[in-house]
Amino acid sequence: MGEVKTVSIIGLGALGVLFGHHLSKRMPREKLRIIADAERVKKYKNEGVYCNGERCSFHYVTPDELCEPADLLIFSVKYDGLKEAVQAVKNHVGENTMIISALNGITSEAVIGETYGMENMLYCVAQGMDAVKVGNELSYDHMGMLCFGDQKPGVASENVKRLAAFFDKMEVPYEVDTNMSKRLWGKFMLNVGVNQTVAVYESNYGEIQKKGPARETMIAAMREVISLSEKEGIPLTEADLNYWLDVLDTLSPEGKPSMAQDVEAKRYSEVELFSGAVLELGKKHGVPTPVNYELYHKIKHIESQY
């Protein structure tokens, strides 16, 4: 099992660029592989990919290229690209490949696990980053951290220790959490609140960091997730809500969540992962979710104008 030496990343969204750039300065170039199809690779090479003003020096591989399996595989695509990404990484997965997914929502692990099994899948949540991506340029003030752990609560597995040792060496801020399903639900609650509210108000983190209707809407949407979490057997509390509100307060007021960036660029958003999922769960448990119902329809309306 040994130490992590090769890393593969699929998806150059905010997270892929941020962590890819960070790792690229600390490990041999060919040991960090960015997986992308030939067309994308051509575009990345021509236009460049920039992180805080610096051009990233990435080693690209296409899905068909044969290679050694990675010790660590990171998914950082958008949810609608996940199925395709799962197929694209097949040459990078071996029996000892650890897999983490930094996608939003609470379902990506299961989708990846259907193909590659759950035994080497660690649950992971990225939090506290305030990156904004415009075209091929990413900028951020706070890198945030990766929280990861096993699916089952309790003791940290060998894989968790292996990943922690690698992140120590690479100076990646992280936290090991022995109750990851709760953390995933907490992050889901945060996204349901902050992503959708900032998108609908067409503003930024500053808007929901201060008292006012936007912040109230956000908290009301988050409380609907709390009532669903109880039914799903992963009960969140007001203390969890306050924990995530504190995380929000650390972000740069000018920053924006991904969904607000999508709306601004007139791209279709991940609304189905947020209020879409809340409405489904509400139906399943007979729990009313009026705030998310309203957010869902407002976002769908915005998207219908593109």
Rank of each mutant, 00 (worst) to 15 (best):
T115G: 06
L73R: 01
F75L: 06
E202V: 07
D240K: 07
I302Q: 11
M259K: 02
I234F: 11
G144L: 13
K266V: 07
G206A: 15
S76A: 15
V160N: 07
S258A: 05
G94Y: 08
M27P: 02
A221W: 00
Y116W: 13
V247L: 05
R55F: 02
G135E: 15
Y140M: 11
V291Y: 00
H21A: 15
V17A: 12
M27W: 05
C147R: 14
V17D: 00
S76K: 00
Y174G: 02
T97R: 07
T62N: 11
P213N: 11
S101V: 10
R267W: 03
P288H: 14
L146C: 06
I74G: 00
R33V: 10
L103S: 00
G286A: 08
V155W: 03
E216I: 10
M27N: 09
Q305L: 15
N120V: 06
T97E: 07
T62P: 01
G135Q: 15
T197I: 12
D64G: 08
S57E: 13
G186S: 15
E47M: 02
S101R: 05
E202K: 15
Y205C: 12
A214W: 13
G149S: 12
I35M: 04
G113K: 08
S108Y: 03
M180W: 08
N292I: 09
E137I: 06
Q151T: 08
A277Q: 12
E175D: 07
L138K: 07
I226E: 06
V49E: 00
L236H: 14
P290L: 12
A239S: 10
N104E: 09
A277G: 01
V200K: 01
K298N: 13
C67W: 00
M27C: 07
A214V: 15
A110K: 15
L32Q: 06
H92C: 14
S8Q: 03
V4D: 06
K78S: 06
G144N: 13
K5Q: 15
D246A: 13
D150S: 14
V247N: 05
E95I: 11
V291L: 04
F188R: 01
G149A: 08
G53E: 07
Y296N: 12
H22N: 09
M121L: 15
D130A: 09
